[in-house]
Amino acid sequence: MDDQKNIEKSPTVAAGSSSNGRGAGGRRVLLFAGRTAREILRDPLSFVFCLGVPLVMLVAMYALFSSMAPGGLFQLDSLTPGIAVFSGTFTMLYVTLLVSRDRTTWFLTRLYTSPMRNTDFVLGYAIPGILIGLCQVVICYLTAMVAGLITGSTDWISVRILPAIFCLLPVIVAYVFIGILFGSLFSDKAAPGLSSIVISAAGFLSGAWMPMETLAAGFRAFCAALPFYAAVRGGRTVLSGAVLTVGGFWRDVLVCTAYAVGMIILACLAFRFHARREAE
């Protein structure tokens, strides 16, 4: 038993014992989250896709089409929420790529034998993803604000920008956890393909640049049941200055929140499933 005492007194085990506490768990999450952020942000293409593409779309669509359809889809107060919702899907893509690559390269296999728990991993992927997604939304709105100031076409953003950003938070959360879900279940070859389906869906079914009123009622109801259109419509409602009704704005927020909660649950289950499968 003397040997056992030596082991228990050893620095490694002593450090490990304390690292099982809640504070150490939080520190592990922050460390892993920092690593996730650096992995995503150090890829130059992430800036191209997460910022470059949405901002070019926002400015180009506004410049090209707003005068052709005054008061319509391509005015900044309609276009900006749509582009912001669309841009979040690229963060999902990068989270998907990172999780699936961590599996393929066995980085997760190495960490499964560490003191980290499944929730530490999931939070370590999700927190930077959500923050990056929120930054995208903020930058989209700031760009729109500048464009609006230059053209003198808007007066809304400075007043309503915070609630407009807040109402997109659930859909950003949903995207990030979809990324964790796909990355946990599918290979680094298949997962990006599935993400591109969600990206396309967010583009076409969100009404970002397509008038939903012209669609058949049934299809419109289908779109309203998805988080994309609900999020865009919610953002537009805030920016329009309309009264935020339970049956309108808050229902849209509820739809997006329901998807976010569902995706959190599914992503956690998928990650746990992968960890167990890896163990066996």
């Binding site: 650096r38 066995w106 296999t109 003191p115």
Partner: peptide, 29 residues
């Protein structure tokens, strides 16, 4: 707490530097 498994694949964080990879591991442990 007393073991480490170095898997078949290299299992490193590709966009982190060598030093950052090492500090990450030390922190997680």
């Amino acid at each position: 707490q007393i073991i480490h498994v170095s898997p078949q694949n290299t299992a490193v964080a590709l966009n982190l530097t060598v030093k950052e990879n090492l500090e990450l591991m030390a922190g997680l442990w």
